[in-house]
Design a protein around this nucleic acid. Structure first.
Length: 899
RNA sequence: GGGCGAAUAGCUCAGCUGGUUCAGAGCGCCUGCCUUACACGCAGGAAGUCGGGGGUUCGAAUCCCUCUUCGCCCACCA
């Protein structure tokens, strides 16, 4: 690490080098080990169960970067941390992917059979799941990988059974015959959350059902005409005058030979449609409830893959539901019973994994009773113990808790935790047993048993992660030490799937919240605001970005571009625009480091405090005091921003300090001192080294690789050094120096003024000009005189001392600084009186307009009376300065117009 | 149908408690520069009625009302 640094930052080389170093030192998981002393409540961040099929997509890149930033930050601030990473891949998605692979071979899961299929999925998961960790390490994530949990490891499996059995014994888990969301493609039940409601432009058909005695008809409306074949009643509102006389009479259900009753039910809205509802108890949740109240038959007319079954007239059997819809409508039309077809926009449930339209289906499923669990979870939020960032997400959470419905947890899949319930086959016993261990005989009658065929919803195991990953139900020391965690960082789309359920199960099983702060970051979207997804082909592979621009560039873009609660828009077709700023910044930092570190040869006097007795305050020049003050202000600003989870603000504060203050101004200022002949080189070295180090600290959570690489290359490093273990910089009141900030600001303004004149007059960059200042306040002792060498170098000025009188040099170009100081460049060969006159008149006019409105403001009695005193004073000060500036400009203009 | 959010430079967005960070940043654009840390750079510049309208206030990008357009969450009107 002592070879000369390359002029261009090479992320691939540096990151790979550090990756191996960190891995060898075990520093991908050093967090908890170092808190061996007194018990420390660690800062815990959890990783959501990734969708193993996606391996690593931009969402994970974003999520894990935010997590890593917070974890590194807390570690640097002296807190023990624990980052629990894991993969829970027991969901529909994983099964889908393997089914797709099978489809390419022309097979389905049914061809393989349960056991072979599960083995096949396992093989896939092992292959892809293992690479996730390597990929996350590649973007610098420092989670405690040794604690990684996998869905089917022993801990998880045991916890799942324990949770199920406990809830079963408390009566919170029950088996019920209800309408659930069914995906005809995945052939499984879905929870309400998994059935995404999407608005679609559909149609509504008005169908006429004749009365059985032929004395009239009743019209019903439906968006799913095919379900009429399963109708077992028509319902009207009991108070509806139009239909009161018809209640109790029978209808002849068209296309069938069945007769169905007309019933009265409160659930019907008399103002909607015709006020009469066809009742299909087996295929609609509302109808199911109506059917129950009126003791109606339930007629299931569909097969699991949504074809019509043998319960319908023969000509419809085997038809797909959408095909059947057309046939039913056509037949109604032929019979003259189709009254109307209207366009209708309504919400249709779709499977969140495969987008297939969900079919409400009557079946036996396992449910969790949610109301008792939701109550304390809601209370935790209302009492303020559980907080959300951004805050408004808390209301979404509360709303969901208040309207919670029971959770369907059984899935008719083969891949997942199998439901730990056994049914006794003996007809006289028939006992149902939930058990923590596998059963071979019925505990009641010793007869043969068979296990429930279904598996659990993935989120059933995921909700246990905060404690199952720590060894629950055993009371392990990990659990004692790390259980109530601190912060959860995750995506808003799994607020209900995962976050809410972790809160509920944590409160119920552990008696305490699993975390107290939920930070919900935005979603990565493309320029059309679509969520990035594989199927749309608008995704960005984070590893591709890492290869091209480096992990730090990726992380910088993510953090800098995302303010609290907003989404991150990236253009997949233009990675350059998004990620180059991060790469450029890394390169800038690299070169600033190259310069500073390269000049630290020889003894560098330490600078312990800003004005320690090693390098005393009296040795510091204006620029030194200025950069130390700026550095301290950046510490304050960045720390405050980090603490408020405003990571983008922290990023921009450090960016600005490094690029604008340190690189553009300070490094330029100290060059003469470093290059030898000027005094104070060792002071400059000390100050540069110190402020640069602080900047590395502040930036490390966001850009760990490059900051660590530079940190390791500084002189005086020790083996085993790591920035993440170094203490966070503290603000020092002695560093604050408003005088230096103001004075150096005027130096910068002076240089800018000279540069502006040079550019305006197109003076050759190589040509030196004479320049001067008329500084009425500090003649001879002003900072402009002290820093004249800097002004000379950066403004390319030949005058060895500032010229003091503009008039003595003929025509000059002048810029007036806000405090009235005149900066002027005698024009010599490039005299251009008309041009200068235009420049100054424009400036005079601008100031004139500013002054006019300012005077109006200050003549307003209301303003003078009502505005706070400081504000009035400030405004008066402004007026004074502008008047002064205007006077100076007018004066110079006068000189130009005189012959 | 209910709830929430957003609209600021050509693009992506900051702007928190109304007034010296008030009209900003990055990218893009224009003009000069290969100046011994960096052309992934340096210096200078152009560019915005702060979505429309109304109100509150001495003062509004900022607070209130309203309209328009996008987005998100929730919801068993068939």
């Amino acid at each position: 690490m002592t070879e000369p640094l390359a002029p261009q930052y090479n992320p691939e080389q540096i990151e790979t080098e550090l990756y191996h170093r960190w891995e060898a030192a075990g520093s991908f998981q050093p967090s908890v080990r170092r808190s061996a002393g007194p018990p420390v409540r660690p800062y815990v961040v959890m990783m959501p169960p990734p969708n193993v099929t996606a391996i690593l997509h931009m969402g994970h890149g974003l999520n894990n970067t935010v997590q890593d930033v917070l974890v590194r930050l807390e570690r640097m601030r002296g807190r023990a941390t624990l980052w629990l990473p894991g993969t829970d891949h027991a969901g529909i998605a994983t099964q889908n992917v393997v089914e797709k692979l099978l489809a390419k071979e022309g097979k389905t899961r049914f061809d393989l059979g349960r056991e072979a299929f599960v083995e096949r999925v396992w093989a896939h998961v092992k292959e892809t799941g293992g690479t996730i960790i390597e990929q996350l390490k590649a973007i610098g994530c420092s989670a405690d990988w040794s604690r990684t949990y996998f869905t089917f490891d022993e801990r998880m499996s045991r916890a799942v059974r324990e949770a199920f059995v406990r809830w079963y014994e408390k009566g919170l888990v029950y088996r019920g015959h209800y309408i659930i969301n069914w995906c005809p493609r995945c052939l499984t039940a879905l929870s309400n959350e998994e059935a995404e409601k999407n608005e679609v432009d559909g149609r509504i058909w008005r169908l006429r059902y004749p009365l059985a005695d032929g004395s009239g008809s009743i019209t019903v409306a439906t968006t799913r005409p095919e379900t009429m074949l399963g109708d077992t009643a028509v319902a009207v509102h009991p108070e509806d005058g139009r239909y009161r006389d018809l209640v109790g009479r029978e209808l002849a259900l068209p296309l069938t030979d069945r007769r169905i009753p007309i019933v009265a039910d409160e659930a019907v809205d008399p103002t909607f449609g015709s006020g009469a509802v066809k009742v299909t108890p087996a295929h609609d949740p509302l109808d199911f409830e109506i059917g129950r109240r009126h003791d109606l038959a339930t007629l299931d007319i569909m097969t699991p893959d949504a074809r019509l079954n043998d319960a319908v007239p023969e000509r419809f059997r085997g038809l797909d539901r959408f095909e059947a819809r057309k046939r039913v409508v056509a037949e109604f039309e032929t019979l003259g019973l189709l009254e109307k077809v209207e366009n209708h926009r309504h919400a249709v449930g779709q499977c969140y994994r495969c987008d297939t339209v969900v079919e409400p289906r009557l079946s036996d499923q396992w449910f969790v009773k949610m109301a008792p669990l939701a109550k304390p979870a809601l209370e935790a939020y209302r009492s303020g113990r559980l907080r959300f960032i951004p805050e408004r997400r808390g209301e979404e959470y509360a709303q969901w808790m208040e309207n919670i419905r029971d959770w369907c947890i059984s899935r008719q899949l083969w891949w997942g935790h199998r439901i730990p319930v056994w049914y006794c086959d003996a007809s006289e016993c028939g006992k149902t047993t939930a058990s923590r261990t596998d059963l071979t005989t019925c505990p009641a009658c010793r007869g043969p048993v068979r296990q429930d065929e279904d598996v659990l919803d993935t989120w059933f195991s995921s909700q246990l992660v905060p404690f199952s990953s720590l060894g629950w139900p055993e009371r392990t020391s990990d659990l004692e030490r790390y259980y109530p965690g601190d912060t959860l960082v995750t995506a808003p789309e799994i607020l209900f799937f995962w976050v809410a359920r972790m809160v509920m199960s944590g409160l119920d099983f552990m008696g305490d919240l699993p975390f107290t702060t939920v930070y919900l970051h935005g979603t990565v979207r493309d320029t059309q605001h679509r969520k990035m997804s594989k199927s749309l082909g608008n995704g960005i592979d984070p590893l591709d970005v890492v290869r091209r621009y480096g992990a730090d560039a990726l992380r910088y873009t993510i953090i800098a571009g995302m303010s609290v609660g907003t989404d991150l828009i990236l253009d997949p077709d233009d990675l350059e625009t998004s990620f180059a700023p991060g790469r450029n910044f890394a390169n800038k930092l690299w070169n600033a480091g190259r310069f500073i570190l390269g000049n630290l040869h020889g003894p560098v006097r330490p600078l312990a405090g800003p004005y320690s007795n090693v390098v005393g305050r009296e040795e510091l020049c204006l620029a030194d005091r200025w950069i130390i003050a700026r550095c301290d202000a950046t510490v304050v600003e960045a720390t405050a921003a980090y603490e408020r989870y405003r990571l983008n603000e922290a990023a921009s504060a450090v960016y600005h300090f490094i690029w604008s203050d340190l690189a553009d101004w300070y490094i330029e200022q100290i060059k003469p001192r470093l290059y030898g002949d000027q005094p104070g080189g060792d002071v400059a070295r000390a100050v540069a080294a110190r402020t640069f180090e602080v900047a590395l600290h502040l930036l490390h959570p966001i850009m760990p690789f490059i900051t660590e690489a530079l940190w390791l290359r500084r002189p005086g490093r020790r083996d085993g050094d790591s920035l993440v273990e170094a203490p966070w910089p503290r603000s020092d009141p002695r560093a604050r120096d408003p005088e230096a900030v103001g004075d150096y600001g005027r130096v910068q303004q002076t240089i800018a003024a000279i540069r502006q004149i040079r550019a305006d007059y197109r003076i050759d960059p190589g040509e030196l000009v004479r320049a001067g200042v008329i500084d009425t306040k500090f003649v001879g002792s002003s900072p402009l005189w002290q820093e004249w060498q800097t002004i000379r170098r950066l403004g390319k000025v030949s005058s060895t001392t500032p010229l003091v009188s503009a008039d003595g040099f003929g025509v000059s170009a002048t810029v007036v600084l806000p405090d009235g100081t005149q900066v002027f460049v005698p024009l010599g060969d490039v005299i251009d009186v008309p041009k200068e006159r235009i420049r100054l008149s424009e400036e005079r006019d601008r100031l004139g307009r500013l002054l006019a409105s300012q005077m109006r403001k200050l003549e307003n009695h209301d303003f003078l009376n009502k505005a706070p005193k400081e504000v009035v004073e400030r405004e008066q000060e402004k007026l004074k300065n502008w008047t002064e500036q205007l006077q100076v400009i007018t004066q110079r203009l006068g000189l130009l117009s005189s012959p």
